[in-house]
Write a protein that binds this DNA or RNA. Sequence first.
DNA 1: CAGGTCTTATGATTCAGATCATACAGAACG
DNA 2: CGTTCTGTATGATCTGAATCATAAGACCTG
Lengths: 196, 196
Amino acid sequence: MIPEKILKQYEAFRISFRKDVMIFLEGEQALHYFQLEAGSIKMITRSDEGQEFIQGISYAGESFGEPPLLCNFPYPSTAYAMVDTTIWKLRKEKFFDLIKDHFEIHLKLDQVLCERLRYKSKILTSIAFDDPENRVWWLINYLKNKSGHQSGKFAVPLTRQQIADMVGMRVETVIRTVKKLEDSGKVRLVNHKILV
Amino acid sequence: MIPEKILKQYEAFRISFRKDVMIFLEGEQALHYFQLEAGSIKMITRSDEGQEFIQGISYAGESFGEPPLLCNFPYPSTAYAMVDTTIWKLRKEKFFDLIKDHFEIHLKLDQVLCERLRYKSKILTSIAFDDPENRVWWLINYLKNKSGHQSGKFAVPLTRQQIADMVGMRVETVIRTVKKLEDSGKVRLVNHKILV
DNA sequence: CAGGTCTTATGATTCAGATCATACAGAACG
DNA sequence: CGTTCTGTATGATCTGAATCATAAGACCTG
């Protein structure tokens, strides 16, 4: 989102995380701006029973964790590396300097927050009212569109468990639902991969 | 959020809406910044069966509908006046001039978006995993805290149907859940009013 | 390449929130 | 102030996703 050249101008530095390593913990105070250089991360909240909800996934070039930075509240979720991941890290003060100096980047940040609000509005309504097939189908299409996939078959890059954690359902229900989507011709399953 | 003096400097004007009148429709293009002077509005999404989900409620002094303005996507929800309402309306171009000129107001706008993200993260997790009692109880406390209520009993200013529309449940379930909260001493019911 | 781990798949059972129907109470309007 | 409308309440029934158990397949690691 923010070009590397500018990140370096404001003294951002790079950090690497192995797969499944925690980047920050729910409840911690935000001290840095984070942007992925490579890999992917997921933002997790947990229910009292320990069930995980995936609030969102971010990929290379995308930022994450800004709301607690801008609003001074603790992290509402925990961030984990989904694969080996490299992240740009920028101190809070420098970050505010950067967006004060660059109105266009500030606007892009706004747009990132707005797209997240848009996604959450949609997934909220879906979880509250849609049947499992529509919930899963909507998410699959969302992932396809977000990846910028153009031609040929798109292989959904998530496990059934991860899909379940994003639509608030049990993995068994997602497995049966994906089967139904196959039966109705909406997706194809090849070696357990979901293709659209 | 934005002081009236500044709104006027950028040629904002006032518009009134009667209770239940629509302010903008889902799918429309955003052309103005909106801020409430008096009254309240609710943002609604609907399922295919017409069930309403209340994405959020805004009160006097608060803004609404910014994401489509900043991101150039259509309104994802429809806004209605919940009571007779007066709104400041500012043309898009003037709005961008305003936030470019006032970094502090731009930051406040960011914080508004961040608080909405925070709420949606929480309600998402709740709807996905919490039982009805915890869902309703969380919402009641959220409304109390958001209203800035200090001493004495807080009367929840929403109908059971509106609560149901915010937590994605049926009104019958909310009615029975509120009864359970009374039975466990968490709330008091006086003339059908919910007091905490 | 084999063994172990994780993911996917399937079947049977349960139960809580949705659904439907009906009645009561408070608010609004003329 | 009476009537109508909206909101609240209650009871009975239904159903589909969750839950639990078990097995098969793909992937990862040494």
